[in-house]
Design a binder for these strands. Sequence first.
RNA 1: CGCGGGAUGGUGUAAUGGUAGCACAGGAGGCUCAUAACCUCCAGGUACCUGUUCAAAUCAGGUUUCCGCAACCA
Length: 475
Amino acid sequence: MNKNFYITTTLPYVNADPHVGFASEILRADFLARYKRERDFDVFFNTGTDEHGMKIHHNAMEQGVDTQEYVDKYAKRFDDLKKVLNLSYDSFMRTTDKDHMKSTQTFWKKCEDNGDIYKKIYKVKYCVGCELEKTDSELVDGCCPLHPGKELEIIEEENYFFRFSNYGEKLLKLYEDNLDFIIPDYRQNEIKKFVERGLQDFSISRLKEKMPWGVPVPGDDEHVMYVWFDALVNYISAIGWPNDMEKFEKWWPVFQVAGKDNLRQQSAMWQAMLMSAGLEPSKQIHIFGFINSGGQKMSKSIGNVINPLDIVNEYGTDALRYYIARHINMYEDSDMTMDKFKEVYNADLANGLGNLVSRIMKMVENYEVKFEPEDFKLEGCSEFIELMNEFKVNESIDLIWQKIKYLDEKIQEEEPFKVAKDNLEKAQNMLKNYLVVLWEISNLLIIFMPETAEKIQNLIKENKSPKEPLFLRKK
RNA sequence: CGCGGGAUGGUGUAAUGGUAGCACAGGAGGCUCAUAACCUCCAGGUACCUGUUCAAAUCAGGUUUCCGCAACCA
């Protein structure tokens, strides 16, 4: 059995601070990466930042800073998530990285050699008011929303195109042969329908004189690559393609996670590009739902944006990790508000896990229970393994809370605090039984809440009660 | 009729034709080891209509309604 596991997130575009939606994507990837390591897989976990393209270039110019400086600043904010969210990724790939850019150029040439790249006249809609190119989806009634009534200018320019239209049949075959290529199945169905409707070639370059911030097209000084083309290649450049083919062979194909806005790019465009370059398709792609707030899409103008940093500052890293794991639906859209977060925090973490640890360990300390945990074997928890093998995060962590509930009930039923008054030894044995389960809980928690798991394990090993509550109840 | 997916207690979820389960929030009691925590009990639900069936949340048809996608949005 292949014990190598390569997982990647999509690369967020660095034109804003990290969003809780991306936090949830990378956290889920982290849960799975940690799980696979626990199962003795050799894991390579990739993430990074997508740093090219017009929007970034414009933002930098607007702020009057050098574009490189601008992306450096934002890339750091994303890399900071490693500490803030306690992530275990191995690779942080920035698309402005020199090796990545070289590998993208090689990739381009492969596609070109295969006859899939050609030049064509491209019609751009240009709003004179904004002095910006506009896409159809940005337009309202055929006009720029900021300058209604103003005719858009049509500008023609020569662009390179990728022969996406060559890959319709091949993509359909890929989906047909791999019925669980995209999870959940309705997303696979969605993309299948999209491909069936017929594919049109897409533009993969921009004129350098208008937009210099991109990877130069090999053999043509006048063009840079369109940001999509370059960003997707990171999944292979991150593991050494094409320079270190041994490394590449070790890790490829990749297990991908992405938000639902990325369905098309990841499961159709990128797969076609891989085919064109003669590479094996991705292993599997999980398409996640979005997080809304108060029933609405998060937006700055509504003021309902949830910043993961704020939550971590107030509640701690593990509380956020917990909330994402247990209460945000992986595949359907979920709603999240600070009120809900507090409710869950108090119910599940303060009253649930935290209180359970306090009550058990307090008795352990008072009754001088001596307990030495045995080495934990994940293999013993077959139900948990089955769920995590299918990447069912919500259900897996649910299982842990069932055990917490079980212990609370058990303590009430057996009343060791009463038993201790006239039969200390019997009470001690009861406590030891609880500790066996608590030890199991702490070990299962490692992948979701690493810090908390470690704290609990230390308390168990030292037979001590926590000096302060694990999760202080919030008013 | 462009294509596709949904509507389960106040909220979030489970149940592939066979007793609608669970958690949170709400109400009542109990316990005292614990963070006003914990335990027990109570109340509350299949959007609507019709059909198939011994039996429907589940299958079919329709109504209402919500949400994606419709191409370069990174």
